[in-house]
Simulated assay, not measured.
Amino acid sequence: MMLTVEEAYAAMFRYLEKYYERTHTDDVGALLGDLQFDGEGKPFDPAAWEDWIKAIMSVKQELETP
């Protein structure tokens, strides 16, 4: 199954949400606050989206490098 960048972000967010529900870790709670989408569909912390795209590009590059 292939996910779009947005779907993968939502999956990562859901994973962290479930982790937070189990642990109530303050750091994860703060991270979720930054990663949460605003009314325009972007994270409250604009740098979070940039970091997400960079992470995707980095992983893709690693997977494509022999």
Rank of each mutant, 00 (worst) to 15 (best):
E64G: 00
E17H: 07
E17L: 09
V5C: 08
A10L: 11
Y20T: 07
D51G: 00
Y15L: 13
T23C: 07
L63Q: 03
A30D: 15
R22A: 08
H24A: 04
M1Q: 13
G41L: 00
A48G: 06
L32K: 14
L35C: 08
A47Q: 13
L32H: 12
A47M: 10
E40Q: 13
W52R: 01
M1E: 12
E6F: 08
L35S: 10
V59G: 01
Y19E: 07
E50K: 14
Y19W: 01
T4W: 01
Q36P: 06
E64W: 02
G29M: 00
Y15H: 11
A48W: 04
L16S: 10
Q61K: 04
Y9H: 03
L32Q: 14
E7Q: 15
M1W: 11
E64R: 05
D34N: 14
T23A: 10
H24Q: 09
E21R: 07
F44L: 13
Q36R: 15
L32D: 14
F44E: 10
K42C: 10
T65F: 03
G29I: 05
E50G: 13
I56Q: 00
R22N: 04
E17F: 02
W52K: 01
Q61C: 02
D26E: 13
A8C: 00
G29E: 01
M2V: 14
H24G: 03
L3Q: 10
I56P: 05
K18D: 15
S58M: 07
A55P: 03
L31R: 12
A8P: 02
G29K: 02
Y20M: 04
P66R: 10
R14C: 08
L35F: 11
Y20G: 03
D26T: 13
L31P: 07
A30C: 12
W49K: 05
A11P: 04
A30L: 14
R22H: 03
V5W: 07
E21L: 09
R14Y: 08
V28H: 06
L35E: 09
K18W: 10
R14G: 06
G39Y: 12
V28C: 02
L3G: 06
L63W: 01
E40F: 11
M57N: 04
A11G: 00
I53C: 03
M12D: 14
V59T: 04
L3I: 08
D51P: 00
L32W: 06
P43H: 00
I56T: 01
Y15Q: 11
V59C: 05
R14S: 11
W49A: 07
Y15T: 09
P66L: 11
D27A: 15
Q61V: 05
Y20W: 12
E50D: 10
Q36V: 14
P46A: 09
D38R: 01
V5Y: 06
T4M: 07
Y20I: 00
D27Q: 15
L35K: 04
D38E: 00
L16N: 15
V28D: 02
Y15G: 07
T23P: 04
T65D: 03
L31F: 13
G39H: 13
E6T: 13
E17M: 08
T65Q: 01
D38C: 02
Q36N: 15
F13G: 08
W49N: 06
